[in-house]
Simulated scan of single mutants.
Amino acid sequence: MPRRLSGGAGDFARRGGQLRVSLTPRCQLGCWFCHNEGEIPPRITHHDRAVQPRRRALDVGDFLSPINAMTAAGIRRVFFTGGEPLLSPLARPILQGLPPHQMDDYTTTLITNGLTLTKDLDWLAATALDRIKVSLHYFSDASIAAIAEGKPGDIAKIKAGIEAAVGVIPIVELNLLLQEQNAHEVMDIIAYARELGIGLQIIELVDTDHNAGLGGVKVASGDISACLRSIATAENVVTSGTGQGRRVFTVSGRGGPMTIEVIDAALGRHHVGQCSTCPEKERCIEGFWALRLDSAGTLSPCLLRPDLRLDVTPHTADPAALLAAVSAHLDAFTEGTLP
């Protein structure tokens, strides 16, 4: 178990305690809404192979060293993302290299589209992953094609992977981006989550330069919340911390009570100093939400501002130097003094 660091550069817990690790910008699908966490979305590269994301600058050790340093310094949640993270040749050695840990110290989550989950599940089950979250934005092959611009998908294969993971991975969850293309299937996905007894998070659209005007009008979550309210035994509204507010519904599911979260922009947004003069503030619905470490070797505290990235490649082999550089960058971001 990594040594717990405290004070100074190690004070990450007070900032929200979340690290998103993007193992690759590549994905089999080309979903219209994808912002790829500030990288070139797969949809754009699929249309024009001349437009490519940044080249990978990190190797296995370059990923694991910052992850271990920042969890020791107070990061409480680590998410492995992409693109589709399981497409990365580094996914297996990185996830197998995670040290054993207690979920009271921090948690590790893989976010995947589920297309290769049945193939990868055996080795994933032997890692220190605490959770797999499958992005289930569709419940039919027709909806996959509508959302992913005709890219082939296989909902039966995705569902088989989800169902195989239940009982093998400690926690399995779903997330769903609410949009016009899947509005007719949302209740089916809710019923599916309840049938399996696994948590579900429903998310409102984040408008970015990459998806504006592509997928129709934004769908608010109010009607979904009203439906959930009619079947819930409890509703808890959470507006503290960073990012958007959310409604947490307790409903009955297989095996007992389970939760369905609805991210609701109407509950308010949480911003920091850098946001006060940011030209993107009016359309931003997150504020300071998560640190994002990407395969190109940069770390960013903001979804919509790639110009605020910090190059961490000089520090990946020196945990103390890495923590000092990242902490100074975050202090400046929080105070609004980054260029």
Rank of each mutant, 00 (worst) to 15 (best):
G197T: 11
G216F: 10
S300R: 13
S88H: 04
G273M: 08
R269K: 14
I40N: 00
R20L: 10
P42W: 06
G82I: 01
L310M: 02
L176Q: 04
T81H: 08
H47Y: 02
T71N: 04
L330A: 03
G61P: 02
D207W: 09
W123S: 08
N236Q: 15
I147T: 00
I162L: 04
T313P: 10
I171G: 00
E37M: 06
D105L: 12
A50M: 05
G153C: 12
P279W: 05
G16L: 05
T71D: 08
D331E: 14
I162E: 05
R92Y: 06
S143G: 12
P25A: 15
A164D: 13
L98F: 07
D11E: 14
T208E: 04
H315V: 00
G253M: 12
D264S: 13
K157D: 14
G30I: 08
G256C: 11
D141C: 10
T208S: 13
L291V: 02
D207Y: 01
A234F: 02
V219S: 06
T108E: 14
T127K: 01
E280R: 15
C31E: 02
A165W: 01
L304K: 09
R92I: 09
L121K: 02
A125L: 06
K218W: 09
A226W: 01
T233Q: 13
Y138S: 14
R305W: 02
P279T: 12
K281G: 00
A321N: 10
F33Q: 07
A296I: 05
P319I: 01
I111Q: 10
N175M: 13
C275Y: 03
P53K: 07
I202N: 06
G114N: 04
A156C: 03
L176R: 01
R43A: 14
D223C: 00
P152V: 10
Q201P: 00
F333A: 07
E235G: 00
G256Q: 05
A50C: 09
I147R: 07
L176P: 06
I260D: 03
A9R: 04
A325V: 13
Q181Y: 01
L58M: 14
L303I: 13
A72P: 06
C278W: 11
N175I: 01
E163P: 09
A142G: 06
N211E: 10
A212C: 06
A50E: 12
I190G: 09
F288N: 01
P66A: 04
D311G: 12
